[in-house]
Structure formats: structure tokens, C-alpha cells
Amino acid sequence: MRRNPVLTVLHRLAIGLYIAFALFPLYWLLKVSVTPNDLLYSEGVRMWPSRTSFEHYAFVIANSEFPRFFLNSFIVSGSTAVIVTLVAAVAGYALSRFAFRGKYWITALMLLTQMFPLVMLIAPMFKILSPLGLTNSLTGLIVVYTAFNVPFATFLMQSFFDGIPRDLEEAAMIDGATRFVAFRQIILPLTLPGIAATLGFVFTAAWSELLFALMLISGNAAATFPVGLLSFVSKFSVDFGQMMAAGILALIPAALFFLLIQRYLVQGLTAGAVKG
């Protein structure tokens, strides 16, 4: 169909405007993080400082506790992502491939967990974990985050498995494979993109989690990035340059995973939105 050129221009303009709106806050973060301290206030509202420096990054990496927060966050998010993906892959496979009596109830239970406010669990969770020695511990966070992310990840994996024809594993079983071998050699390689997407979703979710980390972690030893950054905000409330440098550093892993899963976003969220 031929399009009206005025409409085309308006369309591009609208897209451009939205991209500017989407990127500006991130751009500002970057801008302040590279502005030297002495220019921070005098050039506070300039679009780009007259001089740039990486002094904030250097300070954050060398002299602050951020490398530890970063490492803690990485351990927590990485472990959570791996465990959730394993658990969700197996459960999603069962929901996709077996017709069994409890399937309806399992699905209902998982949907329910998506509906109730997680903030409800903050107090009881603290009470349960504290005698187990799991407060102030990365393990405790991993356990909590894993459980929180399993339902959505299971729906996601289920939709990826649903996309792989049953014929393939039946053919493999006739070719002489057990169900498990068929899963490992035929289904799993074909689900790799889905597994990558699930890993990415869960990693990003765990990386971003704030409230439970605030509640369950006190002190810097086991602080994750959000906890560390927030305590940094209250301690050195004037040092904007360093905070924003730290913020940019916190953004990097999330943005990387976003690039990884970007391709599956539409597909994955549709599955999640329709089912979850």
C-alpha cells in the first residue's frame, strides 16, 4: 500500500521522540558520571560537560566497596538464573509433554503465586530465614529469588517446549532413544535459545531485586548492588558523580542480558502475558 508522505514523516518523528524520551534518563546518567567534580554544579544543566573524566569510575572501582557489591550481585543473580532455569526447564517440559491429573492444579498454583503481593512475605520470610542463619547470607537471597522466579520461568520454558513438535522426540524414541536421551540430544539443543532467554530474564530480575535484599541483608559483606548503592546514597549524598558511575556499572550486566534476550522479548512476554 502507498503511504501518505506526511504520515510517514509524522510516524518517524513520533518514533524519534519516543526514543529520545527512552534514552534521555540513561544519557543523563552517563553524562553526570563523566563530569569532573569541579564542573558538576557549574555545568549542572549543560547537555555535555566541557571536560570529561573517568575519575568517578576509577574511584568507585578502586576505593569503594562496589566491586564487592558487584561480585555479590553477580553470584546471587548468576546462581539464581542457573538454578531457576534448570528447575523451570524440567517442570516446563513436564507441563508441555505430559497429560497428567495434577497439571491443572500445578498451573493454578503457579498463577496464584503471580497474583499475590510478594511484599506480604517480607516479614515471615525474615522470621523463617533468621534461625536458619540465612539472613545476611547470599545463599538465603538465592533461595528466595529462585522460588520467586520459578513460576514465570516455568511458563516461559513450557511455551518454548510447546514450540518443538512432539514428533521429533517420538522419532528419536523410535530411533532407539530413551525419553531422557531424546530430551538431552534432540529437545535440549533445540531449546537453547529459550534457555538463554530464560537465563536472561531471571538474571535481570534477580539483579534488580531491592526490597527483599534490603530486608534480609544488613552490612556490606553480603550486600548486593541495589543495597550497596542505596546505602551509598544515604552516606555520601553529595557525591553524585560516583553514584552515577556506580549506576552505569550496575546497568551494564542488565543491558547485556537485554541485548541477548531482546529477540525473544515479544515471543516470551506474549507467552507470559497470556498464560501468566
Binding site: 513438535p165 514428533d167 521429533l168 517420538e170 522419532a171 528419536a172 524414541m173 523410535i174 530411533d175 532407539g176 532413544a177 530413551t178 534432540i186 539443543p189 533445540l190
Partner: peptide
């Protein structure tokens, strides 16, 4: 189980393993 019945099957959808070459498909069993 199917694997112990020693039968071969041709599916309507062919059910070829997409990540394997023709030779690998044929040699899998």
C-alpha cells in the same frame, strides 16, 4: 518402550532433527 521394539517409522511431518545434517539424521539410530 518404542526403542526396544526394533521398528522404524516415517512421520507425516518427517520429524527430521533440525540441528543435524542429513547424514546425522540417518545415522542417529
Amino acid at each position: 518402550p518404542p526403542k526396544d521394539r526394533d521398528i522404524a517409522m516415517v512421520f507425516q511431518s518427517y520429524a527430521l532433527y533440525p540441528h543435524m545434517t542429513v547424514a546425522e539424521n540417518m545415522s542417529y539410530s
